[in-house]
Computed example of a mutant assay.
Amino acid sequence: MNESHFPAPPATAAPALRRMFVRDMVLDAHIGVHAHEFGRTQRVRINLDLAVREEAGPQGALMSRPGVGRDDLARVVDYERIVLGARAAVAAGHVQLVETLAERLAELCLEDSRVAHVRVRVEKLDVFPDMQSVGVEIERRNS
Score class of each variant (00 low, 15 high):
residue 22 V to I: 13
residue 46 I to K: 00
residue 124 K to P: 01
residue 73 L to C: 08
residue 44 V to Q: 02
residue 104 R to C: 06
residue 41 T to Y: 03
residue 84 L to Q: 11
residue 46 I to C: 02
residue 122 V to T: 05
residue 114 R to M: 12
residue 72 D to F: 09
residue 26 V to L: 04
residue 101 L to N: 01
residue 17 L to S: 04
residue 30 H to S: 10
residue 6 F to S: 03
residue 36 H to R: 13
residue 98 V to N: 01
residue 51 A to K: 01
residue 67 G to L: 14
residue 121 R to C: 04
residue 93 G to F: 10
residue 35 A to P: 05
residue 94 H to K: 10
residue 26 V to Y: 03
residue 30 H to T: 11
residue 22 V to T: 05
residue 8 A to Q: 15
residue 24 D to R: 13
residue 29 A to N: 07
residue 52 V to S: 01
residue 138 I to C: 00
residue 110 L to A: 00
residue 135 G to Y: 07
residue 115 V to R: 00
residue 106 A to P: 03
residue 21 F to R: 08
residue 112 D to S: 04
residue 60 G to H: 07
residue 81 R to C: 04
residue 108 L to R: 01
residue 50 L to M: 15
residue 54 E to P: 05
residue 86 A to G: 07
residue 80 E to C: 07
residue 40 R to D: 05
residue 139 E to D: 05
residue 133 S to Q: 08
residue 130 D to C: 09
residue 132 Q to K: 09
residue 111 E to C: 08
residue 120 V to Q: 00
residue 47 N to L: 05
residue 132 Q to W: 04
residue 101 L to C: 05
residue 65 R to H: 10
residue 114 R to H: 07
residue 114 R to K: 15
residue 115 V to A: 01
residue 127 V to P: 01
residue 42 Q to C: 05
residue 10 P to E: 14
residue 121 R to H: 03
residue 41 T to A: 06
residue 96 Q to R: 11
residue 1 M to F: 06
residue 25 M to K: 04
residue 129 P to D: 12
residue 99 E to P: 06
residue 79 Y to W: 09
residue 118 V to M: 00
residue 117 H to K: 03
residue 23 R to A: 07
residue 58 P to G: 07
residue 44 V to Y: 01
residue 3 E to G: 06
residue 56 A to T: 15
residue 74 A to K: 13
residue 57 G to K: 05
residue 141 R to S: 03
residue 37 E to A: 08
residue 129 P to E: 12
residue 107 E to F: 05
residue 103 E to M: 08
residue 133 S to T: 12
residue 21 F to S: 05
residue 32 G to D: 04
residue 119 R to M: 02
residue 10 P to W: 12
residue 44 V to P: 00
residue 139 E to Q: 03
residue 69 G to E: 08
residue 13 A to E: 08
residue 21 F to V: 07
residue 57 G to D: 08
residue 3 E to S: 10
residue 53 R to M: 06
residue 4 S to M: 11
residue 80 E to V: 13
residue 117 H to L: 02
residue 118 V to C: 01
residue 31 I to Q: 02
residue 69 G to T: 14
residue 46 I to A: 00
residue 33 V to K: 11
residue 17 L to G: 02
residue 29 A to R: 03
residue 105 L to A: 03
residue 56 A to N: 09
residue 99 E to R: 15
residue 139 E to P: 00
residue 114 R to A: 12
residue 137 E to I: 08
residue 115 V to W: 00
residue 34 H to R: 13
residue 128 F to I: 15
residue 67 G to I: 14
residue 126 D to P: 02
residue 92 A to I: 14
residue 44 V to N: 01
residue 102 A to C: 09
residue 92 A to D: 11
residue 44 V to F: 04
residue 101 L to K: 05
residue 2 N to A: 04
residue 70 R to H: 09
residue 28 D to W: 09
